[in-house]
């Protein structure tokens, strides 16, 4: 069996995707869904309800009255915001385990992903686009492949690092050359397996090569820009560092300049601190529930 098959096989042993996020993610793209149907599903999960109420009553929203039920939260903060809270919170279970190979400490990948998700709102607003939940979710889950590829990256780290140094390849290009598959492609395959909506699958799959996406190009490009800006800040950064390509053409096309990047970072810092303090259960706090990099077997 070659290495790629071995890597793909390792994803078979993944724990099932948390049902709540899976339903929530499918709901986002389903025009027939209603906010009420989401609340109906979620209200039976006491930990989600508790976390939503905690956040709604925190300084982040600064609401004047106390929110005491999910239904009330829906009215007070709106459907999109409520979904964002739930997605950010629940994804922490998926993304918070330390990840070998990329040398990510506890919660690092989650912090990087939340930074990307917040940037998806910030950058959409700057481009006068709607900050959709599809974008938010794609940004939050774009690096899910790292969780599965980590072990293999660890085994071949020296060779991958050499290619990024000597031949100036990006980390994804080096992964592809040494392992036969990179974390974006693997993440895309996992997202397919989990039956995510297509734009989210494509955004995960092509977030380091947006020009290769056959459709939903806007979503894919925006996620790739969010990722680059988040990497520049260093929030939740790992062993792959900043060894990825920035797309200057994309910047030109959207009439964005270097000062815009700085503005994005200032705005991100404002929001990130609040979200990190409010949502992040202390490092190590929920370790046992996290998704671990699966063993190679």
């Amino acid at each position: 069996m070659n290495l790629v098959d071995h890597i793909l096989q390792s994803t078979d042993r993944l724990p099932p995707f948390p049902m709540v996020i899976q339903r929530a993610v499918q709901l986002i793209e389903d025009p027939r869904s209603s906010a009420q149907s989401l609340v109906d599903i979620l209200q039976f999960d006491p930990s989600i309800t508790a976390n939503v109420l905690k956040l709604c009553n925190s300084a982040y929203f600064g609401l004047r009255r106390t929110v005491s039920s999910l239904r009330e939260a829906l009215v007070m903060v709106g459907f999109d915001q409520l979904m964002e809270i739930i997605l950010s919170q629940e994804s922490s279970m998926l993304l918070q385990a330390p990840c070998k190979g990329y040398e990510l400490r506890q919660a690092d990948l989650w912090r990087h992903s939340v930074a990307c998700a917040l940037l998806s709102r910030i950058i959409s607003k700057r481009l006068n686009r709607e900050a959709t939940l599809t974008l938010f979710t794609a940004a939050l889950l774009h690096d899910i492949g790292k969780m599965m590829l980590g072990h293999f990256v660890q085994d071949y780290f020296g060779q991958i690092k050499n290619l990024t140094g000597e031949r100036k390849l990006s980390f994804t290009e080096a992964e592809k050359e040494i392992l036969g598959i990179d974390h974006a492609e693997l993440g895309g395959k996992v997202a397919e397996k989990w039956k995510f909506p297509e734009p989210i699958i494509l955004a995960i799959r092509y977030h380091h090569a947006p020009s290769h996406a056959s459709k939903d190009r806007e979503v894919v490009e925006l996620i790739s820009l969010c990722d680059v800006v988040a990497m520049i800040t260093g929030i939740g950064g790992g062993a792959d560092g900043l060894a990825y390509h920035g797309d200057g053409e994309l910047m030109k096309r959207h009439h964005l300049g270097e000062k815009d990047i700085e503005q994005f970072i200032v705005k991100l810092e404002d929001r990130f601190q609040l979200v990190d303090e409010t949502l992040n259960t202390k490092r190590g706090g929920r370790e046992d529930r996290g998704l671990q990099c699966p063993d190679r077997g």
Partner: peptide
Amino acid sequence: ILDDSGFFNI
């Protein structure tokens, strides 16, 4: 970031 355009050279 790997980039020759200068947009990301913070």
